[in-house]
Design a protein around this nucleic acid. Sequence first.
DNA 1: AATGAATGAGTATTCATTCAT
DNA 2: TATGAATGAATACTCATTCAT
Lengths: 198, 198, 198, 198
Amino acid sequence: MKKNKPKYRQIIDAAVIVIAENGYHQAQVSKIAKQAGVADGTIYLYFRNKEDILISLFQEKMGNFIEIIEGKIAGKTTAVEKLLMLVESHLEWVAEDQHLAIVTQLELRQSNKELRQKINGVLKGYLKLIDKIVIEGIETKEFRSDLNVRLARQMIFGTIDETVTTWVMRDTKFNLLELAEPMHRMLVNGCGYQTTNN
Amino acid sequence: MKKNKPKYRQIIDAAVIVIAENGYHQAQVSKIAKQAGVADGTIYLYFRNKEDILISLFQEKMGNFIEIIEGKIAGKTTAVEKLLMLVESHLEWVAEDQHLAIVTQLELRQSNKELRQKINGVLKGYLKLIDKIVIEGIETKEFRSDLNVRLARQMIFGTIDETVTTWVMRDTKFNLLELAEPMHRMLVNGCGYQTTNN
Amino acid sequence: MKKNKPKYRQIIDAAVIVIAENGYHQAQVSKIAKQAGVADGTIYLYFRNKEDILISLFQEKMGNFIEIIEGKIAGKTTAVEKLLMLVESHLEWVAEDQHLAIVTQLELRQSNKELRQKINGVLKGYLKLIDKIVIEGIETKEFRSDLNVRLARQMIFGTIDETVTTWVMRDTKFNLLELAEPMHRMLVNGCGYQTTNN
Amino acid sequence: MKKNKPKYRQIIDAAVIVIAENGYHQAQVSKIAKQAGVADGTIYLYFRNKEDILISLFQEKMGNFIEIIEGKIAGKTTAVEKLLMLVESHLEWVAEDQHLAIVTQLELRQSNKELRQKINGVLKGYLKLIDKIVIEGIETKEFRSDLNVRLARQMIFGTIDETVTTWVMRDTKFNLLELAEPMHRMLVNGCGYQTTNN
DNA sequence: AATGAATGAGTATTCATTCAT
DNA sequence: TATGAATGAATACTCATTCAT
């Protein structure tokens, strides 16, 4: 199993750094190899081609992230709490590894359609996680019974993603985690009952 | 003023078609020229370079869209009504011209960081429009007084954008406009007061 | 028609020189372009790819040679005379342009199977020419009636080809044309009646 | 002596199979090693480099073939009979081991000039054998006294080689051995006296 | 003797842009 | 204005060979 050999992770981590620092289109295989401390050809002992590095990168990192969140959420009892945990974890994840954030939020989105579709495949796991929380919230009556699940998920993911992307692109970084609580309140309100204060 | 000459729009419209049909990375200048019915070199009498075509495309189309929305919103009295108008207009705009939707939602996002930043510059006008509605809503007490304006805008834009992107990528197209009302309710709720039904 | 433009022939002639002097595997496109006095990219305005250069080269040169021989043969009345003309012309053709001889006899034979098959397609025209002479010789009773046409053609072509290849590979070049007459006598004898002097 | 160790032949036989089935340019050392059931590095304990495998292959197989023919010829008294034996043996050899025929007739000829010259060195032994028969034929007056020995050898070898190559390339295989007799008659005629039936 | 992971040199092709006409 | 032939920089991937074990 190639994935368990140290050079597999070594190359993926090198790719994250090279892409974050040089941009997607300037991340040549030779640069990644150099950063990883291996020969160009060694890359191809662990990955089929360049695209395979990028997909594997996304799978490893995002997949890992989804697992962590699933674990954290399991400990929470209400959908509202679970949603807070998801928002906090997501923002924390982004703030912790800015190289990775740049790669997933900005650079990897420049890839061609084929690669983006494979990336979307990985993302689906995350979106299903959100769906589960929304559905649970409806069942427990924390959320409106007439809530459109897909729309709610698009609100939750869209809000987080837009916020994170804006933050990653900013030059001056503020504390992203502080946004978790107000963002969570907005999203829960969005899924809740009353419309205005009238 | 080059922008008023017929070939200027001719080339931009050709670019929309070529990018929508071939994808961003297969939209060569020569293809756009052919579609526009001009010689390759002629492109450079109207645009500085390829990037300039794409930015101009976005400016023309998005700028036009913003103007239309501004007009429509002016006729509404409350922030809630204005937000509904914005959501409806946005979804309508996307549903009306699918070529353009593909280009702005999917293809143009594959461009490099530099181009994307310029595109974001154009988008700022739209985001400011949203900000104005949110601020007005707070002032009229339609929205919470402690609402984080930037966060609210990111929710509104993020939700619309994520929804539209998902819709554009789908093979089977449902009626996008039907989502305006429930999406609007979610967003207004998100900006409003009460959290849950407890 | 690209084939009539001067650069088309210019590139083919450059390819002959570069391949003859550097060998098939050291004949990079950039070298051919430099020899032709054009930019690398210009090659691709006239040829689909590198293989297309080589096929076109063979078609142009060999096709041209076949036409010339056909013309010369038309003036001869007997199959025996026609065969002499063919042998003489072939040897003359090889001796005249040694660069081309190296390319067709040695270098182009190193190409991959796909290219060789296309080259064989061009060669078929030449082999059919030989067949026609053999058949005519049989009909005029210059040759044996029980002569196997394909075998006779293989003897004629094989003998010429083996002789020419040996000559091209030799460092010291003797007068190739002097071999025409004795080679012709051998071939005519081979197609004729008596076996030995017993 | 490496040549007597079992793995030496094992690797050569593997090379014949791999080249015949994959073609010269797809016959990587690693494939040959796998087919031979040894590690890549082991190849280099028995051969200096890849070229050395191919030369050794040709030497072993062709050398073996020459020895066999020499034995068979020794039992014949006239040059004409010896030539028949040579032609028959050659065609039989090709028809018997089609893998080997593909390798020697088609694939090995794609090698570079340097390797082909070394192969020609091995072939010299066979060509000398032909020369001996021709010279004997002249001395015994079976053949013309003014016969050019080199030319006669080129006819004999060229005819057989061209015939065999054509046969190997054909998809539908006919009985090659049936060509021995008519081919022999043609060649003997070619070396003989009379030109035509006049 | 045997292994096999690691090495790293080498090249065809595309396409945005120019400029002589 | 308009043309379009010509330019030339830039990069992923293969595979023969090595050498530490």
